[in-house]
Amino acid sequence: MSADIGLWGVPLAILAGAIRVSIPFLFVALGECLTERSGRINLGLEGTLVFGAMAGYAISYETGNPFVGVAGAALAGSLFGLFHGWICKFRGVNDIAMGIAMMLLGLGLAFYFGKGYIQPVAPDLPAIPLGNWSDIPQIRAALQINILFFVGAGLALAMWWMFRQTRVGLVIRVVGDSADAARAMGMNIDRVRLLATAAGGALTGVGGAYLSLAYPGSWNEGISSGQGLMAVALVIFARWSPIACFWAALLFGGAGALGPALQSVGVSDGYYLFYAAPYVLTLALLILTSSPERALRGAPGELSITK
């Protein structure tokens, strides 16, 4: 039922892993990209992600329909986003700190309400078999690509187009780059940021639903290993470009697949160090691409994290 593909398993596992593992990063990064482009930073997406994972799983289990679960996760995520967006408009409320607080609250609520859903098995999101042309089962398995991957890739493109070509994109960019200019143009800054943060939360919720409904595909308290926080780093080195977010997420996912893949071909010494590869890679890229002299290229001018 399977062919011996030996060392070819490593690149294949990295490719397949990149696709499988990257999807939550992709959705969170796109959501954060949108929020940050409007001039706010939401560090609380880790909490939103985990809550989305719980909500998606619970709803999928209760309704028997994973797509309803995804929609529910998106709704839950948008509520977290709305709250963050609303509360940060008050003078003196720091968006970074509030994000950390929301992360804690999101995790707490997810674990609190998720207790009863650790045991049940909820229906999973379907994957599209794109590898049927191949006789090699490993390639078939690698190309069992979840539907959300295509949704995410499409969203990245759509968002890129939106920022470049549409009035909505322009409004978000102006609000994010200069509050004064936006005010002069009569834009409602708070509302734009509120909506951008809510949309970012919704996307993050979908990323969470992917964790619990697709891969690894079950709900427990250790379901996320910091994807929500890492995605914020990905946005920075993706330079706030949705297309670059897509590649950054893939790169990060592939690096994460490296450790298990190497062990599967017998390279097992120092696996903790291989497992740290995604973090080392991200940090190295951040160091290489940052600059102390000028504000980051592509950075929204209003963003507190780059000031």
Binding site: F90, R91, G92, N94, I100, A101, G108, L109, A110
Partner: peptide, 19 residues
């Protein structure tokens, strides 16, 4: 997780109070 919920709520409320 009740503890975490409480911590989160206090955290949010204290940050909000700064306004």
């Amino acid at each position: 997780a009740t503890n975490l919920v409480l911590q989160g709520m206090i955290f949010v409320a204290i940050l909000f109070s700064e306004t």
